[in-house]
Design a protein around this nucleic acid. Sequence first.
DNA 1: ACCCTGAGTTTGGTTTTACAACTCAGGAGA
DNA 2: TCTCCTGAGTTGTAAAACCAAACTCAGGGT
Lengths: 160, 160
Amino acid sequence: MTWERYDSRVCSVARTMEVLGERWTMLIVRDLFNGVRRFDALHRHIGVARDVLTRRLEALMDAGLVERTSYREEGARERYEYRLTSAGRDLRPILVAIMDWGDAHLAGADGPPLELTHDACGAGVHTHLVCDEGHAIGTTTRLHAATKPGARLLVASHKD
Amino acid sequence: MTWERYDSRVCSVARTMEVLGERWTMLIVRDLFNGVRRFDALHRHIGVARDVLTRRLEALMDAGLVERTSYREEGARERYEYRLTSAGRDLRPILVAIMDWGDAHLAGADGPPLELTHDACGAGVHTHLVCDEGHAIGTTTRLHAATKPGARLLVASHKD
DNA sequence: ACCCTGAGTTTGGTTTTACAACTCAGGAGA
DNA sequence: TCTCCTGAGTTGTAAAACCAAACTCAGGGT
């Protein structure tokens, strides 16, 4: 029973992309990882339209990946900052994988713009594909994709 | 010098997302990984509009991630299929990272729809963050992001 | 000659995005 | 108390992107 017989939407990639796939979302998550927390700072640094940023942040909060908290500095009024939740921080491997690919394929003459290192030892951090037996999975390593009970067969046409 | 002082677009995440960030692209890449190669099969299985699919495939070919080749079966006319290139296959860690996150956070009661296993040993395959010293990087492991010569400082406003 | 199929292309309508200006509220300073 | 500034959106408009369905075109089979 081949992959084509299954409902394309009942798939973890499709589900995740429904959360992350809107324009700018990935860059917003990146900047949140990098410590940008204020609405206007996100707006300025990323270059996203204000109304779109509002809607992206709302969607991320609805999805449970971002939370908005208010805080007040001495002598200043209440302000808000946006932070990643635990589920939001779990997006880190996705971000690093995206960055790794960009480093390898899209860097300019000066090389990649940013390096991620392990605080404890200073070594560079990257994504690796590994099997649960500990084998490294390279680009050419053969993998098998098997559907599980969570998959859903297509009926006739699934166009809504 | 903080991250906010740097040009947000000169970043491997931003560059990669310029290639992958259009709607449907990630799902097209997923299906190509899973052996869907024909235009109409991609159209039907993913549910993407035909003109959008045409444009996505063109963009992926322009970016060097997909190639289109013609083939001819006995007694049939020339047809085309789309396949990932080497650079396209290098996207695999991104796809697996996305799938892993979806498995962990968005699976239904029946669990994740698909399992990826290593052909050679049958064990499940996942993304891991690892430093070059071999340390496993968990969600809470502290990392340091340092800009490199490839980064570009912002001037006043970078709005084009 | 006719029909079917495969891979787009076109059309018209809808939705999303971008931009700039605007709104509103809270606080500081005069 | 009034004015001004700032922060976080909101609004209106125009352009771009997307979608669905129908269409086009070419190659091959009957």
